[in-house]
Write a protein that binds this DNA or RNA. Structure first.
Lengths: 246, 246
DNA sequence: CAATTTTCATTTGTCAGACAATTAAACGTC
DNA sequence: GACGTTTAATTGTCTGACAAATGAAAATTG
């Protein structure tokens, strides 16, 4: 392996890329041990701190894990869906907050994607999924609930719906879409009346899922999306009025 | 800011988390400059290499960028959709290859998610989208095309379809689903006959999109998904027969 | 011989200090 | 004022060292 010391990129970035490529191409297999930091620094002809910076980069992407001790070292990590959820949520949340994505756009994406599992979920939902959804819906109807707790429960409800589709790839992809919306949804569930309506939608969705009526699930999700958009629009309008008055 | 030297986690991981939290909570704004490495090492009471390892972790997630020179330093990065595409594709590809996800599961996820933009795409597609899709479809009908080139064109076709929905959040989410499937799709497009059928589907999808017939797009995508699954099954069966004979 | 304890080599984690490379601002010069 | 020069700040890299963890081998003990 060779590294170009005159490249515009940092040495540690080049080394990280070389190892990442080796992992993605299959040259390095899952759980395979990388050479020790001392060996790597010899192979790439750089110092140990530089190698370490490269390894930290890969560790941040969950591509490797490290272990201290005699038989320790850096190992190619088996990337699990659960590990990837966190990164996906972090990235999605920042994408929404840093790019001035409108509530309408985010909402449209979320429900468009979520509706895609309506059919699968009605075919495969288990009693467990229904129980989780009913439990969360019941929690959401409690009067004393804070906005944050209501939204967390809302996320749990929709996660159960997505998981009911029984496809881990779909669950992973939708984790970002559903969870990253939570901060944005906070602003539209402040009133008891809107909560009541949302709880109503959730009940109907669960009923339709129990009867394995995919079309009805899809219809209710669509109606819920419309309602969320209407609420958001009214919040935005109210803000503009308040701004004009001040 | 304080760091616990007795924590089980590495110091650099703790520092990275502290800064990451500050970014996500809004304490650090986009394009804001972080303290210099020397100042950070004082604040956290660790050495400069440790601070640097933490910064490399954040850089690997595109949360910060660094610049050398007098007015340089580490700056909070505006995370752009284009930047996130790459990470999303890397992660999705590794998830599929490292978790023994069956072709059927991946295919189901991909088409379920892609169908979710059929309606939006037929409402919003422009002449540009149609032109891209027709150009890629035409390329796919050329006889001399390698399997890799055919699949790359296939990805471009579907990317255009997704982009036609005009929602950057959906495009981002589907980038992983569509692009990560490419290596898996390679194995089912080897014969001239299957290519011909796929090109036929692509033509019909483009036609339906031109006529703004969302239901027809959805139908054709569903049929394409079924066909891909059938092909994949026949490939798997053929392999098992070959195995039994050897 | 078996079980337990001790020692030891290996590896990552952290630190200190140094120098090189880069960059923009401050400074002089014309 | 325009244009080079110096300078200070900052990241990138290197060297060398020690601490902490950890499993394996060696020594000890019953």
């Amino acid at each position: 392996m060779k590294i170009d010391p005159n490249s515009p990129a940092d040495l540690s970035a080049q080394i990280a890329k070389a190892i990442r490529d080796a992992i993605m191409s299959g040259d390095l297999l899952v759980d395979e041990r990388l050479p020790s930091e001392a060996e790597l620094s010899e192979q790439f002809d750089v110092s140990r701190p530089t190698v370490r910076e490269a390894l930290k980069r890969l560790g941040a992407q969950s591509l490797i894990r490290t272990q201290r001790g005699a038989t320790g070292g850096a190992f190619v990590n088996r990337l699990r869906f659960e590990d990837a959820y966190g990164q996906q949520i972090t990235t999605s949340t920042l994408l929404l907050s840093m790019n001035d994505v409108s509530f309408g756009t985010a909402c449209e994406a979320r429900y468009a994607l979520e509706r895609s599992c309506a059919t699968l979920a009605s075919e495969r939902r288990t009693a467990d999924h229904l129980a989780t959804m009913r439990a969360e819906t019941h929690r959401q109807s409690q009067p004393g609930l804070t906005d944050e707790a209501f939204c967390a429960s809302d996320v749990a409800f929709h996660r159960a719906l997505v998981d009911a589709a029984g496809n881990p790839v779909i669950s992973y992809q939708l984790a970002g879409a559903v969870e990253a919306m939570q901060p944005l949804m906070n602003m539209i569930t402040f009133s008891a009346r809107s909560r009541e309506t949302i709880v109503g939608f959730h009940s109907q969705i669960t009923d339709a899922l129990e009867q394995r009526d995919g079309a009805a699930v899809d219809l209710q999700l669509s109606a819920l999306a419309d309602y969320a958009n209407t609420l958001a629009q009214s919040v935005i309008d109210a803000r503009q009025v308040a701004k004009a008055n001040s």
